[in-house]
């Protein structure tokens, strides 16, 4: 029997869905009984990376276009938690963004850096007619 949890959800390109998606990620994190670390912290971090990735897709990639959607795929096994956020925009250079260091006085620029800091592997790929931000967290 598969012990994998998979959630595939598509929402309109609007920031009002950030909370809903973040809470789904949090619930999945709490359900990972094999995770030996601080599950409360993991839940917060998963909520955060989902919120940051979705906000990025909505604003930077999809440029707030109300006719576009954002798809989120979350899969969790005993070994890892994988999150994929699909956008329909022109994409962005995640490598450059990840290397920028936000100064204390900067208002923005922390989102992608937080994703890189909290996840074990981050890639931004082209898949079909979408861009995908793929984030992986090892659970052991």
């Amino acid at each position: 029997m598969s012990r994998e949890v998979k959630v595939d959800i598509t929402v309109p390109n609007q920031t009002k869905y950030l909370g809903m998606i973040g809470r789904i990620g949090e619930s999945i994190a709490y359900s990972l009984k094999s995770f030996q670390g601080n599950r409360r912290e993991l839940a917060y971090h998963i909520n955060l990376v989902l919120t940051e990735a979705l906000a990025n897709a909505i604003s930077h990639a999809n440029e707030f276009d109300p006719d576009k959607d954002v798809r989120v795929l979350i899969s969790a096994s005993d070994q890892e938690l994988k999150i994929k956020v699909f956008d329909q925009g022109l994409g962005f250079d995640i490598e450059t963004l990840s290397k920028l260091k936000a100064k204390a006085s900067d208002e923005g620029g922390r989102g992608v850096q937080l994703i890189f800091k909290l996840m074990d592997k981050v890639r931004y790929l082209r898949e079909g007619d979408c861009n995908v931000l793929e984030m992986l967290k090892y659970l052991h």
Binding site: L18, G22, Y44, N47, L48, T51, E52, A55, A104, S105, D106, E107, G108, G109, R110, G111, L114
Partner: peptide, 15 residues
């Protein structure tokens, strides 16, 4: 819960 935008708003207010 606070994300980078929430932190950014507080930094803006502080500045």
């Amino acid at each position: 819960f606070i994300d980078s935008s929430g932190l950014g708003a507080l930094v803006s207010g502080f500045k």
